[in-house]
Design a binder for these strands. Structure first.
Lengths: 193, 193
DNA sequence: ACCTGAACACCGTTCAAGT
DNA sequence: ACCTGAACACCGTTCAAGT
């Protein structure tokens, strides 16, 4: 939505920003809990410079993964074009699982983003994509109506926490099937409470 | 399983241990990220003393919630006596949700416990309770057979992450229903991959 | 306008020295 | 056998001083 590229900015500032993002991307992929100070040092800038560009860890993580998230979000319509809605939904969450596995910290940011004010920047589009997919499924009657996208994303949170054995993909697949079966239209009605 | 009460131990050591646990319980309920140093200080002991009793944060959290977890685990058979298996399963997870909401850090410990060697101490019994409940459901044919207790606990992890509005209980209930519908025997078969 | 880097309060953790 | 508490390396974050 907001286009920050090429805003009037001093050249050295822009360079610093880019180098920080480069280093941060590498550092975060290597291990999710890389310290901000260590990232600043590796980027060859003072801690203050990092904080000037990114006021907190969340902002940095978000900036690092911005394009990747956008790409994931954009893929939803294409999936809907090429597959039945329910399959598209499933495939999209497959992708989400892969993203969450590589992009450390993204899960936490998405979780926190809901409460902080910065809903529009990354959480919003993600929820938007899920909404799109859910609606398509509803229209074909393949899932129960009225599912809340926030709820669905929350439950799918297990995808970020499957441990990283070599069978993680199979396990995630099984569990994804399980949850999606619960979302299906044919699924038993809600229990009497 | 292991009974540590009244092992030969110096009186002051036992007192220190108890005071640390008391303070830690309060501190953790107040906020989940209370520092170990601050807990030691409030308990009136040096940091080294805390570390002598509990080598890391995980051990402390586990010790603090030991009795509560045991109580939860023990409640499973009673639930099975008084309710149909599927209802018992649902009610037990309701309780788990309430526990995870108050006992900060317990969720992380349960997650980490699987990989660390200390499986027997707390993770084991919890998985044991889930296994018991799942088997009972299987026998009445109310859920699909072959569900892995680890998998189920992993998916239910969303319970610890429902945010704490005043509607958290309703939301958790909805999502619990959703997941349990997926576990049901009547649920649609696994998708073709 | 932006960067530097020393500085602050804190963290988890260790370990010599005491009793 | 156990406790103390100074000490270490680190963390996130700030802010005067520079260019």
């Amino acid at each position: 939505m907001t286009q920050r590229r090429h805003e009037p900015q001093r050249a050295d500032a822009q360079q610093n920003r880019d180098r920080i993002l480069d280093v941060a991307r590498d550092a975060l992929t290597a291990s999710g809990d890389a310290s901000l100070n260590s990232i600043a040092k590796k980027a060859g800038v003072g801690p203050g410079t990092l904080y000037r560009h990114f006021p907190n860890r969340e902002a940095l993580v978000l900036a690092v993964y911005r394009h990747d998230v956008q790409q994931l979000v954009d893929s939803a319509p294409a999936l809907l074009d090429r597959h039945p809605p329910l399959d598209a939904l499933r495939l999209w969450f497959d992708r989400l699982a892969h993203y969450g596995r590589i992009k450390h910290g993204l899960a936490d940011v998405l979780r926190a983003a809901k409460h902080d004010g910065l809903v529009g920047d990354s959480y919003g589009p993600v929820i938007g994509a899920i909404t799109l997919l859910l609606r398509a499924c509803e229209e074909t009657g393949s899932i129960r109506p009225g599912l809340d996208p926030d709820d669905v994303l929350l439950v799918m949170g297990f995808l970020w926490r499957v441990d990283s054995g070599d069978d993680w993909e199979a396990r995630a697949g099984r569990l994804l099937d399980l949850v999606m079966d619960g979302m299906r239209a044919g699924a038993p009605a809600t229990l009497q409470r």
